[in-house]
Design a binder for these strands. Structure first.
Length: 482
RNA sequence: CGGGGCGUAGCGCAGUUUGGUAAGCGCGCUUGGUUCGGGACCAAGAGGUCGGAGGUUCAAAUCCUCUCGCCCCGACCA
């Protein structure tokens, strides 16, 4: 079992070259591949299966909290996009424009949606007349185009998939509650429980907030290379868009009022997070709840016993299929050892080995991807054991990631120490910030670390700004980010 | 978009300095056979015009120009 280190030669060392390791894992595990279109990747069946499972967990939560799915146009006329000034400004550099329809030049060019606030707001203004029309709670699963200069598989591509929720409410209070509900009840619950990724939640600074929002809440996840990835955002749009798009209703008190809005999104980027949070030298480790294959059955096929073993494998599959996503790898051309490595690289949580010896003793062998532990299990206990193990793996992945996160949050109060920690240890730094954008900018400039969020849990202690030394009552997390 | 690196068979690479029977290696792939409890072995095969375009030359993977893409580091973002 120790000599299998050599297998890893197919993927770069995670320790030595994290970026290359990431690309290797994504490609060798067949999650995605490059295409001949600049900045655009293809999500392969295995990766898309993962995305579908991720979608279903999140979609369920979105619906449970009262939202419905809809679909809005891909194209957004320039005039609409321009209505909210801060919003356009924020997205202008990365908008792809359609200027021709067939051979005819368009009167007005159209943006390929970089996000859908503009188009959706234009419709909300039609739909909302009375306080009885509110709230509007919609979500859509769509593709998005942002003309990025630098791309990385899943983390930043020209086209990507996401869900974006857009809601309109009567009161400021209600919109704020919605924003927080999405953050905690939907996103945090989903990311921690389904993806096994612990997050730090909080508010973005003015500098980092969404273009056009009142304020933005965020979920930040720590990757195992010490960099932080924004896992999702939930924006309180206030009345900025309502005013720009004229979304008004007649309230019970006979007054015409602007609605209060929110928007929120998560993307296929989360797939990258799963890779970078759970993966190891041997490849992917998928959380059981979203793994396209939860149990892979590898029959050990000796000539004389092949038939019986395959039959048994098939009957086991039939039993497990009722509760789990399970497949058999009965390919003749690969040896069991090859398959073990292959499926481990692809992150399948549990492997079930069945050979003549097992047949004779009425058992199978189960091997965990997370701990690489192997155990024999009696057939009659199989279903409950598999269930138990998958649950354990799910928990274990989260616990491990939590531990890593905790170990990599450091409280620092001295700027030179700050610089050293960011440079050498990476991870998150918890410290005080005076609230001044100049300090924020300078720190970013000098250390490449940005304020990831202002956590909700503000301790009662005051301190001094890490940069300027002025009194501060705001605790923040700094980190280098993807 | 700035700095650096790289594009030769599906993947990983050699060949480029010194243009000329070097289109070559390993893995993978195909066929047949033996195998199968942690990346099996034997035999026989298929496959590239050297990222693309243009140029220099008797002759270009090799020299020149332009161009496209990818990776890394920065600025921007989910």
């Amino acid at each position: 079992m120790e000599r299998d280190i050599e297998f890893v030669k197919e993927i770069a060392s995670k320790e030595k070259d994290f970026s290359q390791w990431y690309v290797d894992v994504v490609r060798k595990a067949e999650l995605a591949d490059y295409t001949s279109i600049k900045g655009c990747m293809v999500i392969r069946p295995y990766g898309y299966g993962l995305w579908e499972n991720m979608q279903s967990g999140l979609d369920r939560r979105i619906k449970e909290t009262g939202h419905k799915n809809a679909y809005f146009p891909l194209f957004i006329p320039e005039s609409l996009l321009k209505k909210e000034a801060e919003h356009v400004e924020g997205f202008a550099p990365e908008v792809a424009w359609v200027t021709y329809g067939g051979s005819q030049k368009l009167e007005e060019r159209m943006a390929v949606r970089p996000t859908s606030e503009a188009i959706i707001c234009s419709l909300y203004s039609k739909w909302v007349k009375s306080w009885r029309d509110l709230p509007i709670l919609l979500n859509q699963w769509v593709n998005i185009v942002r003309w990025e200069k630098v791309t990385r598989l899943f983390l930043r591509t020209t086209e990507f998939l996401w869900q974006e929720g857009h809601t309109a409410h009567k009161t400021k209070q209600e919109a704020e509650e919605e924003t927080l509900k999405i953050l905690h009840q939907v996103y945090r619950d989903y990311i921690e429980n389904d993806l096994a990724i612990p997050v730090i939640v909080g508010k973005k600074t003015e500098k980092e907030k969404f273009a056009g929002a009142l304020h933005t809440y965020t979920l930040e996840a720590l990757m195992t290379d010490g960099k932080v990835l924004q896992a999702g955002t939930s924006h309180n749009l206030g009345q900025n868009f309502a005013k720009a798009f004229n979304i008004k209703y007649l309230d019970e008190d006979q007054q015409e009022k602007y609605v209060w809005q929110t928007s929120w999104g998560t993307t296929t980027r989360l797939i990258g997070a799963i890779v970078m949070v759970h993966g190891d030298e041997r490849g992917l480790k998928l959380p059981p709840k979203v793994a396209p294959i939860q149990v892979i059955i590898v029959p050990i096929m000796f000539d004389k016993t092949k038939k019986e073993v395959l039959e048994k494998a098939e009957s086991i599959r039939t039993i497990l299929k009722r509760d789990f996503r399970v497949e058999i790898d009965a390919r003749d051309e690969y040896t069991p050892g090859w398959k073990f490595n292959e499926w481990e690289m692809k992150g399948v949580p549990l492997r079930l080995e069945i050979g003549p010896k097992d047949l004779a003793s009425g058992q199978v062998v189960l091997a965990r991807r997370d701990s690489r532990e192997k155990m024999a299990v009696k057939e009659e206990k199989l279903v409950e054991t598999v269930k138990e193990l998958l649950d354990k793996i799910q928990v274990n992945l989260l616990e491990k990631a939590k531990k890593f996160l905790q170990e990599n949050i450091r409280e620092v109060s001295d700027y030179s120490e700050f610089k050293e920690v960011i440079e050498k240890k990476k991870g998150l730094i918890k410290t005080h910030w005076c609230g001044n954008k100049d300090c924020e900018d300078k720190i970013k400039e000098e250390t490449k670390a940005s304020i990831r969020c202002i956590p909700f849990e503000q301790e009662e202690i005051s301190g001094k700004c890490i940069y300027c030394g002025n009194e501060s009552s705001t605790l923040v997390y700094f980190a280098r980010a993807y």
